[in-house]
Amino acid sequence: MALHPTFMIGYYTFKGGLRDRLVQSLLLTGLFFLLSTLVFSSFSMRQPLEVAINYSLATVQILTILVTLFLGLNLLSREIESRAGYLVMGQPISRTVYLLGKFCGLCLLSLLVVSFLGLCAAGGLLLVKLGLKDTPAIAWGNFFVAHIGIWMISLLLGAVTLLFTALATSAVLPFLMTIGVWFIGQSTQAVKNYLEAGLGEQQMPRFLNWLVTGSFYCFPNLSLFDFKTYAIYGLALPPLAVGYAMAYGTIYTMILLVLATTLFQHRDMT
């Protein structure tokens, strides 16, 4: 079976990720955290099940993003900075194939991570539910969509890492910059809502207003992928919001990939 080189690189990136000690330990931490759902939710007075869903989804989200960030650091940035990339780039394949292969591997890894953590979370929730009487049903469909949202965030951040890696010559810089994008991307919507509600107009200088609007359009809006509320409280998911988020995420990621591969073409591998 002859796979396209892109998928071969992806497959071996995937393999490398699985053998990454850091990732293994993060997954173990995740398992521990998801087990602690039982304890965490027991402190709730009125809504232990909601708290359990909330806690496990937050755990899945933070860990998936952390794993993606560290994988990006170890499998993309470190590889390109170290000479391991020479080996692959010395082959008759284009740099675009190399970069896309790496991204494919990263996608696969984060999918695995999010599914693994999601299944653990589901197991933990079933345990919590066993110990409770008269609880509402868990909205499993929403729970699933929330995971897709988390995966989308990790893909987007993976593409951001890829872009910064294509630009920067140090390995840690793209990692730190991606963390920055993550922080900004999670809050642009909130800040914009705050400004639009007219709450901050008095204190905010005008240039700050422009800055916020600028970053809202420039940085990825990660709040769009947050379907946790729907999963926690079993609310009806608006299909338009889900569809819009998916389209936005896909297009944004593709733009990042195009930019990254274009920039990477012209980069010196010193």
């Binding site: 002859a2 080189p5 690189i9 071996y12 393999k15 170290s82 020479y86 082959q91 394949i93």
Partner: peptide, 21 residues
């Protein structure tokens, strides 16, 4: 030279061979 140190020589050569079709 600096290779993917998580691989074995056999796996490494398989990857390179695959990239060279």
């Amino acid at each position: 030279p600096h290779f993917y140190d998580f691989l074995t020589p056999v796996e490494l050569l398989r990857l390179l061979g695959a990239m060279r079709q």
